[in-house]
């Protein structure tokens, strides 16, 4: 058995670690409240923009925009992965990195070239280490993402999509439901399609990813669309706003006045929508990271407690054993002294 001194030192060091994990847990739990609040605010904004776009889509479904157009050639894909800047957050980074890898594999299997962009130091380091070519990486924003950051990122993505450097843009991020339920998710950013553009993680496996990619490879706009029948009759062009309706029932409303013009309103509305979506994605990822860190640190603190309990027991046993040994040594020494005195 170990010496009681050694065990005491181990207990001391574990108590130190426990203090750190406990502190990290408390920091994460206070941060997560703020993060949840920010998500709710951003969701309100996104919903507002979605509603306005829906109103436009319901009444003027023939208006087209390049951001909505399905690509004719579809072989270049830009994949954006959102990871954390720091570790110690349980399976958060591993799960999202695994999803990105699966996505790359599925895209390459379908004969598409993939450009990889990464947000977050962890992901960047991993993909560089594994030999993937990371075209661009953004760092130092997983702690407190700002709207301007989101705008810069989405502007860059948008210009690449419009210039034809990428025919399709996907983003892999972690969806936040509550601190215990976070899901790695894939979402299509460009061409814009508001509904059914996400797949939840509970059906995420390589086969489903291929189906997901394949579905977008076809003319997705005419599927499950209220106006799909009319599409065929009127021969509407691709990339019109009715791709956004996606099976939702339009509320009956009179026609709108557009100032300055419908095309211009839509043209400025769609980028705004993408900025806010990317902002929402960054916020959700941050909240998921904090949630994962909180859970991980909670488990770590509990484990530390368990180890300390076990070690304390062992320490007492060792100490008692030592005392027993010392007593028996004294007694036997005394006995031998008595024997020799006789």
């Amino acid at each position: 058995m170990e010496k009681s001194e050694d065990i005491r030192n181990r207990i001391k060091s574990i108590k130190g670690t426990r203090k750190i994990t406990k502190a990290m847990e408390m920091i994460a739990s206070s941060k997560i409240r703020k993060a949840q609040h920010r998500i709710n605010e951003a969701r309100g904004f996104i919903e507002g923009i979605e509603n306005v776009i829906m109103d436009i889509a319901c009444f003027s479904s023939t208006v087209a925009d390049p951001l909505l157009a399905e690509p004719e050639i579809d072989n270049k894909v830009l994949l954006m992965g959102v990871t954390a800047d720091r570790g110690l957050c349980g399976g958060y980074n591993v799960n999202i990195i695994r999803l990105i890898e699966k996505m790359i594999a599925a895209l390459e299997k379908s004969q598409r070239s993939v450009t990889l962009e990464i947000i977050g130091t962890r992901g960047k380091n991993y993909f560089n280490y594994m030999g993937y070519k990371v075209a661009r990486s953004y760092e130092n924003m997983s702690d407190y993402p700002k709207f301007l950051d989101a705008r810069e990122i989405s502007k860059d993505l948008m210009s690449r999509f419009l210039s034809g450097q990428a025919n399709r843009v996907f983003i892999c991020y972690t969806k936040f439901k509550n601190p215990a339920e976070i899901y790695p998710t894939v979402r299509q950013l460009f061409p814009i399609s508001i509904y059914e553009s996400e797949i939840p993680s509970n059906i995420l496996n390589s086969k489903n990813l291929e189906v997901f990619i394949d579905r977008f490879g076809r003319n997705y706009s005419s599927e499950g669309n209220l106006n799909s029948g009319a599409d065929k009759v009127m021969g509407r062009s691709r990339g019109t706003v009715d791709t956004l309706i996606g099976g939702r029932v339009c509320r009956l409303r009179p026609e709108f006045i557009y100032d300055p013009s419908l095309q211009e309103v839509l043209g400025s509305m769609l980028p705004e929508y993408i900025y806010s979506v990317v902002y929402g994605i960054l916020l959700e990822s941050t909240a998921s990271e904090t949630g994962a860190r909180m859970t991980a640190m909670k488990t770590a603190s509990e484990n530390a407690d368990e180890i300390i309990n076990g070690l304390t027991l062992m320490y007492h046993r060792a100490r008692q054993q030592q005392i027993t040994m010392e007593i028996s040594e004294i007694v036997s020494g005394f006995e031998s002294f008595n024997v020799s005195a006789d």
């Binding site: 009179p254 026609e255 709108f256 006045i257 100032d259 300055p260 309103v265 400025s268």
Partner: peptide, 19 residues
């Protein structure tokens, strides 16, 4: 402050979307 000038809205105004 609409893009094409100042705009006033009272109840029962026609539905409008502006920049």
């Amino acid at each position: 402050p609409s893009i094409s000038g100042s705009l006033g809205i009272l109840p029962k105004h026609m539905p409008i979307i502006t920049k």
